[in-house]
Design a protein around this nucleic acid. Sequence first.
DNA 1: TTGTACGCGTTATCAA
DNA 2: TTGATAACGCGTACAA
Lengths: 328, 328
Amino acid sequence: MLLSTIKEVAKRAGVSVGTVSKFINNIEVKPKTRMAIEAAIKELNYEPNIYARGLKMNRTNTIALILPTVWHPFFSELAYNIEKNLRALNYKMILCNSEGDYKIELDYITMAKQNQVDGIIAITYSDIEAFISSNLPMVSVDRFFNEEITYVSSDNLMGGYLAAQKLIESGCQSICFIGEGSKKDNSTRNRKKGFINYCEEHRIDYQVCEMIGDHDKFDETLKQFLMDNLIQQKKIDGIFTVTDAYAYFIIEKLKEYHLSVPEDVQIIGFDGAKSSKKSVIEISTIRQPIELIAKHTVESIDALINKQTIEKEIILPVEFHQGSTTKH
Amino acid sequence: MLLSTIKEVAKRAGVSVGTVSKFINNIEVKPKTRMAIEAAIKELNYEPNIYARGLKMNRTNTIALILPTVWHPFFSELAYNIEKNLRALNYKMILCNSEGDYKIELDYITMAKQNQVDGIIAITYSDIEAFISSNLPMVSVDRFFNEEITYVSSDNLMGGYLAAQKLIESGCQSICFIGEGSKKDNSTRNRKKGFINYCEEHRIDYQVCEMIGDHDKFDETLKQFLMDNLIQQKKIDGIFTVTDAYAYFIIEKLKEYHLSVPEDVQIIGFDGAKSSKKSVIEISTIRQPIELIAKHTVESIDALINKQTIEKEIILPVEFHQGSTTKH
DNA sequence: TTGTACGCGTTATCAA
DNA sequence: TTGATAACGCGTACAA
């Protein structure tokens, strides 16, 4: 079961390599020669060597997907859908878990530049612009870099707005936003902004518990915030968290103090990812259209690779998912 | 920021391509020439073309990971860890979601044969042996094919045994195994077998609710089983499910009939995967040593690629995780 | 220590 | 319609 080359196939079929190449690439050949080539390929168990082809064509049909970690419901659902869409266009996908580490991200980008891949899909909050050359097609998901770099994102602004609206409509009197952001991460900033927009438009009092950057202290800050506003005094009865993960975390914390959700406090998260195809979303949340994100991301990277012109900014609609953490 | 070739670097540095190649591959050159080459590389923004190298060397430092879907807690945790281990050995990983579809699996294997990858790591229950040539290194995870194909697996037999033991130790009087298997899938069969072994060794009555192959009817079978043994009469007070996913499913079902876990029925699942690094395992379960599996799998595939001799069968220990679905 | 020249497997050009 | 041959970028004998 050894592999053979196009040369051997040509010799066996009694034709030239050029003709075999044409056949492989679906260019018309005489029925008779076609049959001879087909037979030779089968007999010799021939498979085209993609690397020789890549060398010649400067195309490998491979895309790198760089994300923090696939070990996370949102990213695994996204990675699954992106791979599915890529495969439909005959691309392979190299999975790159950067763990949000700038150095690892650069390693992957270096790899990409070595012609390993035709393009990059990245979810990153590091400043990697400088390392992206214009001849390396890239699509950013969730993160805006600059006017040049195509990006695909959920409508985070609308998501935050919707969350505030739903909390109020479900009967909350006093609501807050809880999250941990980074300066770079405009998507989480927009979630907060949308939330605030709604509150200010409707003259509703709101609070924000946030910590930029310094992750270590957030636990403490959060605990203090919950103490002050929920446990010692029930000032707040509605919470919007920047991600579902935070929502789950807070639900656990509240349990410890015997506050019940949604009776005492209602909570809305953000993401709406499921940990597997069959599982269900338990909490109330703003759901990102993951399938759509994947679809548009792949369409964009494919268009970039094929030098077609495309929208540089794609914002996709979110929707509210009613779960068990808000009242009907 | 255009890419340049080794030729251009050589010209710029005033040396030959051979010398540059040596430098790239860490073969000693004179300090003076080294500096000239280093400068030229920087100036020309040179990156070695991995495909030209791969063509020449017949190595690409890329591994294909074939699994049903990364959109699943167990597989995403596994994929994450495998990629991490591969990266440490300087391999890239192509992620292949086969959705358990034989045809898609073969497509990926064809790709692998075209020299896209140096080896395959596969989690599959299809009969793909025939398509694996001996010159394509492969490690199977969880599935035994034959004596030739290296495989890495949890100790499923011990897991089933442990589950039965723990249920009994937690006070169960009458226990059962619930699962859906396939004829090919020896890992789930072993879970059942271990469970039965314990019961028979200790002369404990047990039941089995199982369906091989025909997925459509399983829902109905299961419902009937629960009706007969739990809802109408409380015959059973301990359940071992073949995976965590089934455990969750059954917990939901029991809720509908107002049976509470673990008070009325205790449940132990199998897998113990977390949906993200930070999340916690809620249910009682037999935990697979995912990190260890990843580590040994990667070591094995690397050894195979480098033609080293290795263990053909690696069985790794499982452990019981105490969660909220069994009594202490 | 460095340079030359060939080959890896494929596609593209052009002539037949 | 087919065949011959020159690239593609790199590694490596072998020669200098």
